[in-house]
C-alpha cells in the first residue's frame, strides 16, 4: 500500500493552516511527521482520517482516493482520551466494534493486546483507577484493536517511563516488520530516527522537506568534519598554528576535533593540511547532521 497526500490545503476561518502538504509513505515503512507546535501536523492527520475535508488537494491510497470505510486506520491521538469512568474491556470492545469487528473478534483482539502489554489483569478496572502510563497503554490497545493497516501515532512516547517506552518501541518495530504503514508524529527526534525511514518536516502549513532520512542527511551540507584522534589538544593546536581560510571553527573534545569548514569543497585542503600530523589521527570523517539539527535548521524562525 502506498499512502499519498497531494498538495493539501485547509483554512479555518481567516487562518490558513495548511498551505500545500504533499508526502507519501509505503507499507512496511514508517513516516515521521515533524513540525513545531501549530505547524499543521494534527490537521494533516485529521484530513487523512477524513474528520475534515481539505479545501484542495487529495489523499490517495495506491492512487485511488482513500476510503476510510474500506481500510482500517488505527489512531493514537495526541490528546489521549477514553472514558475515564468505564471499565477498560467494555470501552475497548466498543471501539473494536465501531471499527467494524464482531464482538468475538474484538474480545479476542483486546485479550491478545492486553496480554502483550501486560495489562490483562486490569481489564475490568475503571480507566481512571490506572496510572498515567498504564492509561497510555490502554489507549494504545484501543488504537490497535482493529488490527489496522495504517497506524497513526501522535506523540506516542510522551508520558511513558523507559520500560514502557521500550515495550512500545518493540511493538512499533513489530508493526513495521509486519508491513503496516506507520505515520509517526513526535518531537522526540531520537525516536523518529530510530523508526522512520522517511520524514516530512512541516513549517507554517507547508512541507518544507520530505524524503528518506539517509538521503536527506547525505544531501545536507557536508562541511562538518570529525577528526578522531588520540591527542585532540595537539591536533587543535596544529590547526591553530596553520591557519587557513578553509577552517571556520575547530572545537576540541576528549578524542575528537570537530571542524566546521567554510565550504564542503574545502575538505581536500584540510585533508592535505592534516598530512603533517597524520600519525596522531585515527580517522577523518564527515559528520552527518542529526535529525535534531536538520529539524532546527528547517523550522527555526517559524512561528
Amino acid at each position: 500500500m502506498r499512502l499519498q497526500t497531494e498538495n493539501l490545503t485547509k483554512s479555518f476561518g481567516e487562518k490558513q493552516v495548511l498551505k500545500g502538504v504533499s508526502f507519501s509513505v509505503e507499507s512496511g515503512r514508517a513516516l515521521g511527521l515533524l513540525g513545531r507546535n501549530g505547524a499543521g501536523k494534527t490537521t494533516t492527520i485529521r484530513i487523512i482520517m477524513q474528520v475534515f475535508s481539505p479545501d484542495s488537494g487529495r489523499v490517495l491510497l495506491d492512487g485511488q482516493p482513500l476510503r476510510t470505510d474500506r481500510v482500517k486506520i488505527g489512531y493514537l491521538p495526541e490528546e489521549r482520551g477514553l472514558y475515564p469512568k468505564k471499565p477498560i474491556l467494555e470501552q475497548l470492545l466498543y471501539f473494536g466494534k465501531l471499527g467494524g469487528l464482531s464482538k468475538k473478534q474484538a474480545a479476542e483482539q483486546a485479550d491478545r493486546l492486553l496480554k502483550r502489554l501486560g495489562m490483562a489483569e486490569y481489564r475490568d478496572k475503571r480507566l481512571d483507577t490506572l496510572s498515567k502510563g498504564n492509561q497510555q497503554k490502554i489507549q494504545l490497545v484501543a488504537t490497535l484493536i482493529t488490527d489496522p493497516d495504517i497506524v497513526i501515532l501522535d506523540e506516542p512516547f510522551s508520558g511513558l517511563d523507559p520500560v514502557n517506552a521500550k515495550l512500545l518501541k518493540e511493538l512499533v518495530q513489530e508493526m513495521i516488520a509486519n508491513g503496516k504503514l506507520v505515520l509517526f508524529s513526535s518531537h522526540q527526534m531520537n525516536y523518529i530516527e530510530e523508526f522512520c525511514n522517511d520524514i516530512v518536516i512541516l513549517r507554517d502549513g507547508k512541507a518544507v522537506l520530505s524524503g528518506d532520512i539517509g538521503e536527506i542527511k547525505r544531501g545536507f551540507d557536508r562541511r562538518t568534519v570529525e577528526i578522531v584522534t588520540t591527542d585532540s589538544a595537539a591536533v587543535a593546536a596544529f590547526l591553530q598554528e596553520h591557519k587557513t581560510d578553509a577552517v571556520q571553527r575547530a572545537e576540541c573534545s576528549e578524542n575528537l576535533v570537530t571542524v566546521t569548514l567554510a565550504r564542503a569543497e574545502d575538505k581536500a585542503a584540510l585533508y592535505a593540511l592534516l598530512a603533517d600530523c597524520a600519525d596522531k589521527i585515527d580517522a577523518f570523517r564527515v559528520k552527518e547532521p542529526t535529525l535534531n539539527e536538520i529539524f532546527v535548521h528547517y523550522t527555526e524562525g517559524s512561528i
Binding site: 474528520v51 489512531y75 482520551g81 477514553l82 472514558y83 475515564p84 484501543a142
Partner: peptide, 16 residues
Amino acid sequence: AVEKSSRAMELLITSA
C-alpha cells in the same frame, strides 16, 4: 460534553 472534555471524542470522531 463528557466525551469531549475527556477527549474520548478524538477517537470516536475518527472511528465513527
